[in-house]
Design a protein around this nucleic acid. Structure first.
Lengths: 151, 151
DNA sequence: AGTAAATACATGTATATACATATAAAAAAT
DNA sequence: ATTTTTTATATGTATATACATGTATTTACT
């Protein structure tokens, strides 16, 4: 769906203004799409993100801060996301030996299994619903990074 | 900042996978940027969105549903966002004459003033921080719409 | 060594999101 | 005309976001 239809507006200050709205809308669209699969596994978007980050280092343990700085949405409250994952026995908390301020986290066997099943589903959903050739995807990546270049 | 640095990951399944993460990250980046200005006016991102939508029709009144379907994030809970705007006297609720199920909403004079001041600040922030020429912005819009084409 | 500053994490509060359900009014079906 | 269905909005609950504050531990300073 074109942005104009999606937000029922045709008045944009300029192409860049439209592009910022388009990025925000597309992100919401992607999240909504993924959430449908995640819901079946009882996971939220951010819980899934944390599990994937942990998997990247598994079987190494990761501290809360390291998880946080790898998250897509940095302001997420990692300790509480971990609370819920721990409650579901998908991750395990323990104290760091090196730095007693740190809490270190690792995936459980159950966590690995749930993540595997979930990411299979999510990935195939994305493959079916989000079609774009490599060349376009590359341009898109380049333009998004140009957009953020000020930072 | 490049995506790889932002989320400290270099392993992407393919360019499209990277692009979905890039869209999500860029949206978060944009929201964070704008929130700094909005905060000074005591507005959240979604409250600002509702005010802008109301301004587009002002002085016409709009019902909750019409506001909802113009929002960037559709799942936002419009009645409660309006609650908070009404509390701050930025919008006014009244009953619809045509359909008694509807609540209709309109900007107050104060709402117009706050929106004006806020959007001036937000727009100039975006102009300073988000630099992109018209041609690139146009390509970006095209690619984002291609990404969502399945829908 | 002792104090100050910084860091890692946890907690508290307000708002937002996601989703289920409730309520009233309007539209459709019979 | 009465019942059923749909629509518009509101409310309730769990989780997440945004931000401030608290606490323990480590690092830096003197």
């Amino acid at each position: 769906m074109k942005l104009e239809q999606a937000i029922q507006s045709t008045k944009f200050k300029n192409e860049l203004h439209k592009a910022t709205l388009n990025v925000l809308y597309t992100a919401w669209w992607l999240k909504t799409l993924m959430s449908k699969e995640l819901k079946e596994f009882g996971l939220t978007h951010e819980q899934y993100n944390v599990l994937r980050i942990l998997k990247g280092k598994h079987p190494e343990k990761m501290c809360v801060k390291d998880i946080g700085c790898r998250m897509i949405e940095k302001s997420s409250n990692v300790p509480r996301i971990i609370d819920r994952l721990a409650l579901k026995k998908l991750v395990k908390r323990s104290d760091s030996e090196f730095d007693k301020r740190e809490t270190v986290i690792t995936l459980t066997q159950s966590g690995i299994a749930v993540l595997e099943a979930t990411s299979n589903k999510v990935n195939s959903l994305l493959e079916n619903e989000v079609i774009m050739d490599d060349k376009d995807a590359k341009s898109l990546n380049g333009l998004l990074e140009k957009l953020r270049a000020g930072n």
